[in-house]
Design a protein around this nucleic acid. Structure first.
Lengths: 141, 141
DNA sequence: GTAAAAGTTAACGTTGACGTTAACGTATAT
DNA sequence: ATATACGTTAACGTCAACGTTAACTTTTAC
């Protein structure tokens, strides 16, 4: 009872079916399993992921390629988790983790910069609000 | 000594000449005066405005059309300011100010929503940072 | 079992945001 | 005064991010 057809996903996410298939095509949404006849069967995970993509796209203004990078990092991290840590390849895993750390830290810096610029922008709008409100009160005394 | 040719503006803003002309063409950058021969002569105001546009575009992820709306609101407000407030058209001016207020308030809501989503996103990255750091410390004990 | 609804791939169309090129006029340094 | 560096408009090219349409198969409802 936790399998969704593409139209259900479309309705819940607000995206079109075309867009959902496109996101799979370019690799930002991981492929769902298929039915006997070839129909896509989505899970809650897919819907969550789509919600994150929409946020990154609309709110953060990320391109789909940037989102792809972000997704890739998360998947690498998930892979790492699956593996036992006490093995011969421990060295390699550690260096990979360090690489991932660099990328995640970069993402964090980017987002912090964006938040700061947003706050600057907010101040500008606040200033405009004051101007408008002053104008109105000056005319309604 | 405060007139800039387009190439100067391009260098200082980091935009191409084509982009600068394009922004004028679609109305997000107000047209500069021209020389005798037809060359565009920019001022500091233009450079400031371009910087704001780039911020809104890259950082806030606004489309140029959205920026156009924003610019239009600011210009309306500036027009209002130029006019004496005690005149026969005071009624009309007040209602215009109220219209502007609605739009500015909307902009403010939009930006606030974006900031909130940004902060959510930041938390996600923070979580990933923790996972990575924990993974590294677990392997370097 | 069959019609209608929803699914599939594949290919072409569209729109925004510029890049590129052509064909030409203007400013400036020697 | 003339080369050359920079300006102008106008038109076509490009790329991302989908929309649209066609031609077809699978599910679902009755």
């Amino acid at each position: 009872m936790d399998k969704y057809k593409i139209d259900d996903v479309a309705k819940e996410s607000g995206l079109t079916k075309r867009t959902i298939r496109y996101y799979e095509e370019i690799g930002v949404l991981f492929p769902p399993e298929r039915s006997e006849g070839g129909m896509r069967l989505y899970t809650r995970k897919h819907i969550e992921r789509l919600s994150q993509i929409v946020n990154a796209r609309d709110v953060l203004g990320f391109s789909l390629m940037e989102i792809q990078d972000f997704v890739a990092i998360r998947e690498k991290l998930d892979e790492q988790k699956q593996v036992y840590w006490k093995t011969e390849a421990a060295e390699e895993k550690l260096s990979q983790l360090r690489e991932i750390k660099v990328m995640v830290d970069q993402q964090m810096d980017m987002v912090d910069q964006k938040i700061n610029k947003m706050i600057e922008f907010r101040k500008e709008i606040e200033h405009m609000q004051k101007r408008v409100n002053d104008g109105i009160s000056k005319m309604t005394t």
